[in-house]
Simulated scan of single mutants.
Amino acid sequence: MRAIYWLAISTLGLCGELPAQAAAFSADVYRQPQQRWPEAVIHKEAGPVSELAPLPELPPAIWHTEATETLGRQLFFDPRLSGSGQIACASCHDPDLGWADGRRFAFGHNRQAGNRNSMSILNAAWFDQLFWDGRANGLLAQALQPITNPIEMNAELEQVLAKLNRIPGYRTSFAEAFGPGPIDADQLAKALAAFERRIVSRPNRLDRFISGQYNALDDREIFGLHLYRTKAGCLNCHSGALYSDRRFHHTGLSYYGRQYQDSGREQATGRAEDRGKFRTPSLRDLAYTSPWMHNGFFPNLRGILNMYNAGMIGNSQLHPELPPLSPLIQPLQLTPSELEALEAFLHTLSQSPIVVRSPILPKSPPKN
């Protein structure tokens, strides 16, 4: 069935049921194999859009072994990688907080606040470009940047490597993972990346629904799924297994020319046409990664939905040095009941992340 169901519904029922006036829509059109779902509404400038899907197998990496992953887990939780000896990777990417930190802006060295929200590292293995501005091409390129960033961990890489080489437990673990010889930056990056690759979302209710467990979503959530793929236009950017197109879009939230200005992707490319663009975040496990957006501006989902429903701030309010908003940003005219259904559906995209406890760290040698 390839029909598109446009609805005019004023209220939604309780307990996941649609009211009587929603007879034009039947949730059963989604309780069937995905290839028979109603046709998605895709904007002509969205580019290729993948249908929502479960996560695939982890992509291979020859340097990812059990030994490098175990070593990377220790390093990820070790504050000795920072200049102060007090900040670890896990300080901003806490497994109990969706592998983010729950703050609008992260605190770094000397309690300095950054200017961006800490992106969760969930499912980072599938992203080719990391950070909000995409300045790192994959996990290996990303792994060491927070260590040397003066606002984050504020360490000199050579001093970190010297410190690790003085710790007997790390010398042994690095030798087991990479072979004999001094610990170097390449090994440190590979170990951290090997652990970070394993931070993967667990199957959520939508995954189970797609696999044929049609009781995993109720009628209201299925209606929200339908809106996500059609009238609300969410699939244009939040698509595929990651619920992200992995591209960069200008949504008008850069505060350009004002306090909290952030030029976004331009900082990585140097191109004025990238000013104000940020990477589309994944919506997997979004219930555990608030506050949202690059500046942590939104503490609740309804605020985000209301902004998108209004077409964000609109081109007329943009700073004259900014490029136009993404053509995918348009007023949606969703009714209150449709917004409720869409929000209910978004809550089906989360499954509590796997519990990872801090490992026992190698002891530092006695001070002379």
Rank of each mutant, 00 (worst) to 15 (best):
Q159E: 13
M119K: 12
L122T: 14
I147F: 05
E156H: 13
L164E: 01
F127R: 14
R135Y: 08
K163E: 09
Q159T: 09
G134F: 03
P150K: 04
P168Y: 09
I121L: 15
L139R: 07
W132I: 10
N115G: 11
S173C: 04
A136N: 13
Q129T: 09
I147C: 01
W126C: 07
A113V: 03
A141P: 01
W126L: 10
A143V: 07
I147K: 02
A155M: 10
K163A: 11
P168I: 07
R171H: 08
I147E: 00
F174G: 01
A136T: 08
N115Y: 10
L164T: 05
A136H: 05
N165K: 06
Q112V: 03
P150F: 01
A175K: 12
I147D: 01
S118C: 08
F174D: 03
F127T: 03
A155Y: 05
P150S: 11
R171K: 15
Q112H: 12
A141D: 15
N149E: 09
L122F: 06
N115S: 14
W132A: 07
F174H: 04
K163P: 00
S173N: 10
A125S: 14
D128A: 15
A113K: 13
G138L: 07
D133W: 03
A124L: 05
N137D: 13
G169S: 11
G134P: 02
A125V: 15
T172A: 15
R116S: 06
Q145N: 09
L157A: 08
P150D: 02
A136Q: 07
I167Q: 13
L130M: 02
L130Y: 01
Q142K: 03
R116I: 12
N165D: 14
P168V: 08
F174Q: 09
T172E: 15
L122E: 10
D128P: 10
D128I: 03
Q129H: 15
I167L: 08
F131L: 11
R171D: 05
I147G: 01
E152P: 02
A162W: 08
L122Y: 03
G169C: 07
